[in-house]
Design a protein around this nucleic acid. Sequence first.
DNA 1: AAAATATAGACGTCTATACGTCTATATTTT
DNA 2: AAAATATAGACGTATAGACGTCTATATTTT
Lengths: 242, 242
Amino acid sequence: MDKILITEGVPLYVKIREALRAEIMHGNLHPGQKIPSEDELAQQYRVSRMTVRQGILDLIKEGLLHRKHGVGTFVSYPHFDRDHTRLTNFFESAREQGIDASSTVLKIEVSPASDKIAKELRLSPGENVICIRTLRFVNQTPVTVHDSYLPHRLFAEIVYENLENVHIWDVMEKYGYRVKRAIQKLEARPASSEIAKLLDIKPNSPILYKERKILAEDGTAVEFTYCYNRGDMYSLTVSMER
Amino acid sequence: MDKILITEGVPLYVKIREALRAEIMHGNLHPGQKIPSEDELAQQYRVSRMTVRQGILDLIKEGLLHRKHGVGTFVSYPHFDRDHTRLTNFFESAREQGIDASSTVLKIEVSPASDKIAKELRLSPGENVICIRTLRFVNQTPVTVHDSYLPHRLFAEIVYENLENVHIWDVMEKYGYRVKRAIQKLEARPASSEIAKLLDIKPNSPILYKERKILAEDGTAVEFTYCYNRGDMYSLTVSMER
DNA sequence: AAAATATAGACGTCTATACGTCTATATTTT
DNA sequence: AAAATATAGACGTATAGACGTCTATATTTT
């Protein structure tokens, strides 16, 4: 039985990958089930085995499939929370979950970087950074105070952009930097009086404190942030592998 | 100039990957620098281009290299915190950081799973789980209360094992399950009086609360845990990608 | 000088083939 | 019946070659 791939302008292995993904999602292939072997799929789709393999390997990396040498390839069980594992920005993830999200800019200023930020962003000593403090709302309730530090050298003109209700990562793309990776450190902390006031909670309430460094595709450190998230209204899901 | 690969019994692409890694680590190739093209490397190592490619792709997945279509492959800047990004267990990561770590078992019991745990571990209704509560210490100070739930069906005999100062993941391997992935939800919460007493802190102090589901290589859900970590003594670093 | 175009280098996709290694199962031997 | 062995199926590694696409740079044209 031949399977035919129609779309043009898309690599074959991507088509096969998506065809397999669709079969899994639609339940034609169910969790735990063995999928056809690389050879069989190659014949079905009339491509070479290596092409099928490339598509399968993608899905394995994603966690949708797993395989055992000498035995076969199997559909993984769901609950891998694939969606929450990707690096998404505030507005993206809110939109996906159908939540009303907004943000206001509290402050923009340019000043020399602190030692810590200079080190994290790999700046020369005394180099300037743009600091943007925003307050983020979910359903009109303040949830996060977000302090963002950007190298002034790379984003000097960004201070003239509209930054309300827009994610800064989208703005960065105009400057040629596409965000690729974040390294984040998480802690539970008591809210300072300043943060408590902004988030409309009592001082010393638990805050999910997050420091993160954002890297672009070429490894440039493009942003460093301090985030103060209301503990009772914010949770974060991550996936890690051995 | 030919480069020669000596070790036997190791795939060629692994040798090339490790040779490249060594060159980067030893500083022969420095961050930002362009490495030789796939064609050049194939000639140097006298292998096919696809073999070199497989090695390079591994290093890109790791974040050690990055590439730009039509331009070349480059050494990434460090600070990717590769070490903190892997899923490691409590004792592994403590050892790596040269920290004194220990744990005591407070309780072991077998009982029917709660609805939530049955759902997360994909158990039949009413199926039994083993609950193990441990207290973890760093430098003799209690840092984490750890409630672990395991399917009784898979690990019935585990209750007879020594579980003090041992990580349960190591014990699980004896039962044929190798931990592969964790999906964790993180929140900042106030400490309950029970948890506060165990961690020797005041009630309502910030706790980094963590729920996680642990999956084995074949996708079996092997453990569900609730973790209560002292906010002032525990932080977690994770990396996420788009 | 500016704009359009050509070119070379490098990565991206794809094929067809070969042989190695691992696992589960069937077969044979003890 | 148990143990050893063979076998088939499936993934793992590796090659050589072809052509596509992208980027930066050099060249030509305007």
